[in-house]
C-alpha cells in the first residue's frame, strides 16, 4: 500500500505487510544507490506486527516508479548472483573431480 499525496508524487511511504528487515533493508540499499533518490529509510512500527514502512523521497520522479525500479534492480542483482553462484559451483565441482582423477592416476 502506498501512502503519499496527489499533488507531490515524489514523496511516498510504502507499507508492506508480511515483510521484514530482510526485504526492507535490501531494497533500501538498492534505492539509495539510485541517484534519483534523495532519501530512503524504513521502519518497523511494532516488532510483533509483520509490517514495514519504507519511505522514499526523490528529486522529482514519482516515488512509486522509483520504488519499482529499485525492486527491479534488486531482482536483477539476485538473478546475477544466482547465475554466478551456479557457475562458480560447477567450476569448483569440475576442478575437484579433475584433481581427484589426477591423484587417482598417480
Amino acid at each position: 500500500m502506498e501512502i503519499g499525496s496527489y499533488s507531490d508524487q515524489s514523496k511516498s511511504t510504502f507499507c508492506l505487510v508480511d515483510e521484514d528487515h530482510t526485504f526492507a533493508n535490501s531494497v533500501r540499499f538498492a534505492l539509495n544507490q539510485d541517484p534519483r533518490v534523495t532519501f530512503c529509510g524504513y521502519s518497523i512500527p511494532h516488532p510483533s506486527v509483520t509490517q514495514v514502512n519504507i519511505r522514499v523521497q526523490t528529486t522529482g520522479d514519482p516515488a512509486k516508479e522509483v520504488m519499482k525500479d529499485g525492486c527491479q534492480d534488486l531482482m536483477r542483482m539476485c538473478q546475477h548472483i544466482r547465475s554466478s553462484f551456479t557457475d562458480a559451483f560447477i567450476d569448483f565441482k569440475r576442478t575437484k573431480t579433475d584433481t581427484k582423477q589426477d591423484m587417482d592416476t598417480k
Binding site: E2, F14, L16, E19, T22, F23, S26, V27, K64, M67, K68, C71, Q72, L74, M75, C78, Q79, R82
Partner: peptide
C-alpha cells in the same frame, strides 16, 4: 528474495 521483489512490483 527475487519473489519478494516481484510481489512488491506487482502490488505497486
Amino acid at each position: 528474495l527475487e519473489d519478494k521483489c516481484e510481489r512488491v512490483i506487482t502490488e505497486l
